[in-house]
Each structure stands twice: as structure tokens, then as C-alpha cells.
Design a protein around this nucleic acid. Structure first.
Lengths: 204, 204
DNA sequence: TTGGCTATTGGACTAAAGTACAGTTTTTCG
DNA sequence: CGAAAAACTGTACTTTAGTCCAATAGCCAA
């Protein structure tokens, strides 16, 4: 349960003190090199105007989870942080209870996302996902595909090779190819990768 | 800190017992009417095949937060639950630690979303927000990849063939293959489709 | 019954993709 | 400068993918 706070100056904010009195304060310069001790969560403060991509990679190379404490957290910033590998991103001046909450979630292997952003994410993506996530990929496929073809298409979209599909469906690899030819034709795709992108909603 | 568990039959599962021994068990029929007491979180079990929209509205009309305990939680189901107003959705048989985690998050006014789904939401929305530009894809790649490799990887992930990549980068197709071999090695993928899924956040 | 659709498979082939081994040039950095 | 990493390319090879032509068998509806 070792916490490490990384910042450009050695100032321990009151809310940090309250949330994690035992945390170790480290200057950002010092945090770059060396093989960090057994830190479970590394809190890195991101000051206004700074870019995540500049400081995050060096931190991720070390052990433990990384949480961004942003002076000016915006949805875009949070998304960027999470995409880049951070386990969470919250306001630098968040209440101690919130920080402890974040620590609990991240410590258990979760990702922390603020409620505002989460609501937005859900609203924005609900329809896309409910129709086009790999699990229910079949639903997103054109009705022109037969049942068997949808089945094969879904497996291709999730990364299976022809041989794997053949084995799992107990049919000849040749048959898989036949289905695929029909699928490419009906869906207007040229190969399995294009098909995957289409099924997964990443391409028009 | 009053917990109420709503189910069709009066069976207290072991993991529930462990996570919240003081919870009150209520049959679904009884939970529909009346002005519930001061319940902070209402856990409602959703059995296999049942629809959320049928049982959730009645529960939301009452006080407290509602969390769905799903026998067969899928991404689509979870989204449906959250969209419909639930504060979280997790597996009926989730470990006690997870349930307590959920309770903590929800109790503090948050929404609880599983990590898988969250990763997907983030990946998708990040792409939407950044308008599919290659920069976002590159950011999602391991920093062990060199600049050129990230460039190639991003193009592969968007569906380009080796020849197309070679033309666009004005290098030999052979060189593209060389980069790909290194990319597969570093990312732990076996072919371009797996790489695409990984980069696009559809696969661990 | 016949025609159409689907599922299945074979052989043969072309085209990509990916690997192995080997090498040169350029860039980066101490 | 000199070492190391990255970028680039070649020949040759194995493995998948995808296509073409052709055929058998089951199911359903006009």
C-alpha cells in the first residue's frame, strides 16, 4: 500500500495529506529514473497546460499503477490519460474521500472515471456498443448474411484464423473460405481485416 | 448504510453474505409497492434471460441507488442497465471484494462499470473525439515501439495492406514486413488482425 | 416435383502475409 | 568520434488468405 506522489515541487496539499498521510512525495525529475520501489499507486500531478504524453510514458515504465492528478481536468484530458495507460484521472484538489475512493478502485485493478465523463461515455456510445460490440457482432451484420455466415464473420472479427474457425465449427477450412468469399461479397469488404473493422464499427 | 437485496426467491448467496451480512432480503413482488425505508443501495438480481426494462423502472421510483446483479452480464446488458438509471451492474456471483467495491463507489455517488466495458468505452470515445486521426492510435501503442513502427502499426490497424503502406511511406514492401515482424514481437500479437484488435482497444 | 437457397467440400491456383538470414545506411547519443 | 539503435533493402522460403470452377446434399416454398 505504498503511495507515491510525483510533482514538480515539494508541496503536500491538504487534501492529499488527509487522504493518504503516509504517501511519499517525489519530485518529477527524481521520479523519471531508477527502478521504483514497491509502489502500488503513483499519483502524478499534471499542472495546467502540461501534456500528458510528455510525462506519462516514463512513469508507466515503472511498477505500480499511475493516477493523474490534473489541475484542469477536462473530458478530453481524462480520456487521453486513460488511453495512454493511466489507471485514473481526477482533480488535483479533489476531496480526500474521493482520493481514497480512487485509490480503492485503482488498487483493486480497476480504472477510475469521474461520473460526469462516465455518463457522457455511456450516452454517447450506448447505441454503437449495443449493436456493434464483438460479443453481439452478429446483430450488426447485414441481414443478407446467412446464420452460418454471421457466425463465421463474428469469429473473424474477433481475430480467429480460418483454421481456428474450421476447428471450432468442425468443418473444413475450405468451407470457411467459401463462407468468407460470400461474406466479403455481401458486405463489400476485401479481406478479413476490413471485415473486422466494419463489424466492430470502426469503419464506414 | 442499509442494503436491500431483491430477488425472486429468498436465497442468500454466499458471496452476498460475505460482502454484506446485514443486508435485507426482499422478494421482488414485495419490493414493487410501498415507500421503501431508508435504503442506500438496492441490489436487484436479474436472472438469465430477463429484461432490465421490465423490472428496473419500479425500483428506480423508490429511494436509494439501484445496482443490478446479473446472472449473465454482457456489455450490452450493462449499458442498458446504466442507461436505464441503474448505478451499476455486475455479476451475480461476483466475489465479495468486488461487491464491496461496487457498494463503495455507488454509495459515494459514483457509477460502477466493469473494466472490460470501460476500456471499450474509452477506446471508442477517444477515437470519436479525436476524429480518427492517427495520433490517437499511436498514443494507444506501447512506447516500446519506435516512431516508424507506430506509424506502420497505425496504418495496419486501420486496414491498410503492406503494399499500400509501402506506397504511402515510399519504402519497399519488404521494409514494411520488417517493421511488422518487430511490431508483432513487441506487442505480443501474431498477425495484423490481432494487432488491429489490440490497437483499437477491442482485445486485451 | 422443381427451383432456389444454404451448407458443405475438393482441387488447383494466385496473391498476400509472415519468417529467416544477411546486409547497408542513417540517426542518435554519450 | 564511435557505439547503438533505428531504418531500410534484398533473396528466398513457408504459411495463410482468397479466388475460380465444380459438385453433392438438405431444406423450404411455389
Amino acid at each position: 500500500m505504498e503511495y507515491e506522489i510525483v510533482d514538480t515541487e515539494h508541496a503536500f496539499l491538504p487534501n492529499w495529506q488527509a487522504a493518504m498521510p503516509a504517501a511519499r512525495m517525489v519530485l518529477r525529475a527524481a521520479a523519471q529514473g531508477g527502478a521504483g520501489a514497491d509502489v502500488s499507486i503513483r499519483w502524478c500531478r499534471l499542472r495546467a497546460g502540461e501534456s500528458i504524453t510528455v510525462i506519462l510514458p516514463a512513469l508507466l515504465a515503472r511498477n505500480g499503477k499511475t493516477v493523474i492528478l490534473a489541475d484542469e481536468p477536462g473530458d478530453a484530458l481524462i480520456l487521453e490519460a486513460l488511453s495512454a495507460g493511466a489507471a485514473g484521472c481526477c482533480n488535483t484538489h479533489a476531496a480526500p474521500e474521493v482520493l481514497q475512493q480512487v485509490a480503492a478502485v485503482v488498487g483493486n485493478g480497476g480504472l477510475w472515471v469521474g461520473q460526469n465523463l462516465l455518463q457522457q461515455l455511456i450516452g454517447r456510445t450506448a447505441r454503437i456498443l449495443s449493436n456493434q460490440n464483438p460479443a453481439s457482432a452478429k446483430a450488426a451484420l447485414p441481414d443478407t448474411l446467412s446464420e452460418r455466415e454471421k457466425q463465421v464473420a463474428a469469429m473473424v472479427a474477433s481475430g480467429a484464423s480460418n483454421k481456428e474457425i474450421a476447428n471450432r465449427l468442425s468443418i473444413a477450412e475450405r468451407t470457411v473460405k467459401a463462407h468468407l468469399t460470400a461474406i466479403f461479397d455481401k458486405t463489400g469488404t476485401r479481406d478479413r481485416l476490413q471485415l473486422s473493422l466494419k463489424i466492430n464499427g470502426l469503419k464506414l
